[in-house]
Design a protein around this nucleic acid. Structure first.
Length: 435
RNA sequence: GGGGGGAUACCAAAGUGGCCAACUGGGACAGACUGUAAAUCUGUUGUCUUCGGACUUCGCAGGUUCGAAUCCUGCUCCCCCCA
């Protein structure tokens, strides 16, 4: 069984994913035998986002290397609020909301980790736990006697996450958030007792919480356990990766469409592409080296970005979704749109394009391009529509309309009942025929 | 309580009787360039139009005038100074 363990630590180091580790000999330790490792995720929303991807991929790498991953959903800790990296006290979410979030997140994790009993990992299938299940059973008194007794407050207040807040007299920190660290620390103890879990993973902002768990495990159980953090996924300008104008980049297709997801990665800056390939994909070292080289010599081809976008889109949304995204991309950035046999095909590709309805009779009679733009809500007024045409910014089926007197007819239909209009570079709208 | 200043299009800001749909800057929107980037350059930026114009807009309501964003009266709101 332990014979097919891969040297994951070497791979992580190559990918620069090891930010801090509690032991010099972590790499060798991981090769001794299959280990059980865990990382925690706070259910602050009903979907995971790109910020969660890095630690989740880390668990996935461990599983593929022959270890057993535990994904911990923080139903309890999430209801408290982690003060790490937060400058202000946060509002509490309702328990019902958190429960709903846990359910949604659980499904997304199953796409990346193998929970099936037949999982290939030497150590067995991945495990999903919710710390609400054990923490909620504690009485306050028991918790203070069993756990609190083992935690020196002077150590707690020296942790950065707490210290920063204590030093700022304007915000301070509530007793509730102060206690967060204890809950997370106890999680490690619980997982160690229940599943023999010996390693906690997390982002570098979790270092304080990770070491708190290690200390507590030693005091409460006399166990030697380990911790490792990875860098945070940031862009070269220091901002967070995965932030869009509309907020976070979600893994849920209903919140962030596969097309938007793909496009985000497709447009990653050259300086960030190498890091993303290393951190988020499972491409081989050789291929990543090659892509680095391509980026140097012919950045204009964006080979790295396309590879990154395709790899991640397929992982998160599946092969079928990727194929549709490819088609859509070709159309959105390509030439004219030909005829589509069915409305369904067109519908899929233009899934996020707004559409308006128009009576079939009006189109049959001929519709001026300006009226069509207004009907499709691409322009506010006829005057604006006229201007857009004059500027050369009006298109039917991606073909520029030069004349204001152009009449849109049934001959322009891209599919039996749909007409594709565009204003400028990428503002699309559909007109759907109705009786 | 007294004195002074101000309100203009998405924002900022000119304009103080006709040449004002209103300078200019930003933003936004198009186009060129480009790597689906950045920068740059060009154009547009009240509504409608049979492309001749027509209509509505400069805090609100009235008034003077052939004609008002511009002058007068009242109202509302904002800022500053003195007490």
């Amino acid at each position: 069984m332990s014979g097919n363990l891969q040297d994951i630590f070497a791979d992580l180091q190559w990918r620069q994913l090891v930010y801090q580790a509690t032991s010099e000999r972590l790499g060798a330790w991981l090769l001794e035998r299959p280990r059980t490792v865990y990382a925690g995720f706070d259910p602050t929303s009903d979907s995971l986002h790109v910020g969660h991807l890095l630690p989740l991929m880390l668990l996935r790498r461990y599983q593929k290397a022959g270890h057993r991953p535990i994904a911990l959903v923080g139903g309890a800790t999430g209801s408290i609020g982690d003060p790490s990296g937060k400058s202000q006290e946060r509002n509490l979410q309702s328990l019902e909301q958190i429960e709903a979030n846990v359910v949604a997140i659980r499904g997304q994790m199953a796409q990346l980790l193998d929970f099936s009993p037949t999982a290939a990992s030497a150590a067995g299938p991945a495990i999903l736990v919710n710390n609400y299940d054990w923490i909620s059973r504690f009485s306050y008194l028991d918790f203070l006697r069993d756990v609190g007794k083992n935690v020196p407050v002077n150590v707690m207040i020296s942790k950065d996450s707490v210290k920063n807040r204590l030093e700022n007299p304007d915000v301070g920190i509530s007793y509730t958030e102060f206690s967060y660290m204890l809950l997370q620390a106890y999680d490690f103890v619980h997982l160690n007792r229940t599943y023999g879990c010996e390693l906690q993973l997390g982002g570098s902002d979790q270092w304080g919480n990770v070491t708190a768990g290690i200390d507590l495990a030693r005091r409460m159980a006399g166990a030697e356990v380990f911790g490792m953090t990875c860098p945070l996924l940031t862009k070269s300008d220091g901002s967070k990766m995965g932030k869009t104008e509309g907020g976070a980049l979600w893994l849920d297709a209903k919140k962030t469409s596969p097309y938007q997801f793909y496009q985000y990665w497709r447009n990653v800056a050259d300086e960030d592409a190498g890091k993303c390939l290393r951190f988020l994909t499972e491409l081989s070292h050789e291929e990543i080296d090659h892509l680095d080289h391509c980026r140097q010599t012919e950045p204009e081809r964006a080979v790295s970005q396309i590879r990154l976008a395709e790899w991640l889109t397929e992982l998160i949304h599946g092969r079928g979704a990727l194929d549709l995204v490819r088609q859509a991309t070709e159309i959105f950035f390509g030439g004219e749109i030909g005829k589509f046999a069915s409305d369904a095909d067109l519908n899929q590709i233009f899934a996020e394009v707004p559409s308006s309805q128009i009576e079939a009779a009006r189109l049959a009679a001929g519709l001026s391009i300006t009226d069509a733009l207004v009907e499709a809500k691409l322009t506010k007024s006829k005057g604006e529509a006229r201007r857009v045409v004059a500027e050369g910014g009006a298109y039917v089926n991606n073909r520029r309309i030069e004349s204001e007197s152009y009449q849109v007819t049934t001959a322009d239909l891209a599919s039996p009942t749909m007409l594709v209009l565009r204003r400028g570079k990428k503002n699309y709208a559909l007109l759907r025929l109705v009786e």
